[in-house]
Design a protein around this nucleic acid. Sequence first.
DNA 1: ACCCCGATCGTA
DNA 2: ACGATCGGGGTT
Length: 156
Amino acid sequence: MAEELIGKVLVFKQHRGIITETEAYIGFDDPASHAFKGETPRTKIMFGKAGFSYVYLIYGMYHCLNIVTEKAGFPAAVLIRGVQLSDVSKLHLDGPGKICRHMGITKAHYGIDVATSEELYLGCIKQTLAFSKTPRIGIKVATDRLWRFLAKSEKG
DNA sequence: ACCCCGATCGTA
DNA sequence: ACGATCGGGGTT
């Protein structure tokens, strides 16, 4: 799903943009995942059905948006790390904290079903984007896994 | 009650 | 390279 989401459209309220960068956090054997140590109130949504938002606060200052994937009982999520805004600014939001800060996404938007919500959802465009795979960044473990996906022409 | 630390970002 | 800033989660 992290690969699939490259080139899809992220819509939140009046904001929309093409997803240019994602990271995957998968299952019980991924030590970089918040779900690795088991289910907690914060990570509960990751253990549920796919298609729900997982928003968390990081470093006391920034929010990060994920989309839960995989079947219930198997924790996984895709972190949205990069978005190219579709408005006239064409601003490239580079980093999960910047995306949420710009769009106003907070923990209040935890657990939204993106399949039915009219506030937060995903869309398609006709073209697909080529992408590259790299190690995930900002983590200190499991950096050998190529679970970061970056649209071509993005640096990194 | 206390402590450590983090899927970040802006500034130096 | 570093500090800001605070909640989550484990430990006392």
